[in-house]
């Protein structure tokens, strides 16, 4: 089992999509939302994912493919 903390950022139309629900349904991943701020045009959700490493990777690839941005929880790790 693996655990990963990520931040999803949704833009415009994607705000209305049940991405996190499907991530839990279509993949063997348990999702646990810790903090979120979702507005009409922009939203983000910080969450923890539990599952097999490969399954989490597959799930996150699917999330990215929908146009939702996936980032580390604390913002960019890379600095100037």
């Amino acid at each position: 089992m693996d655990r990963q903390r990520v931040k999803f950022t949704f833009e415009s139309e994607m705000v209305k999509e049940p991405i996190i629900y499907r991530l839990g349904q279509d993949f063997h991943i348990v999702t646990n939302i810790r903090r979120a701020d979702v507005r009409e045009k922009l939203g983000w959700v910080v969450l923890e994912l539990d599952g097999e490493k490969e399954e989490i990777e597959r799930g996150l690839q699917w999330v990215s493919s929908t146009g939702v941005r996936v980032d580390p929880v604390g913002g960019d790790v890379i600095a100037g």
């Binding site: 833009e11 941005r69 980032d71 913002g75 960019d76």
Partner: peptide, 25 residues
């Protein structure tokens, strides 16, 4: 006038400032 910061994909000559998802934004 937003209260959130929308992440971007950087493309700048100023590489030292090219951080698209600023932690303290």
């Amino acid at each position: 006038g937003q209260t959130q910061v929308k992440p971007v994909r950087p493309n700048s000559i100023a590489k030292s400032l090219a951080i698209g998802n600023p932690a303290d934004g």
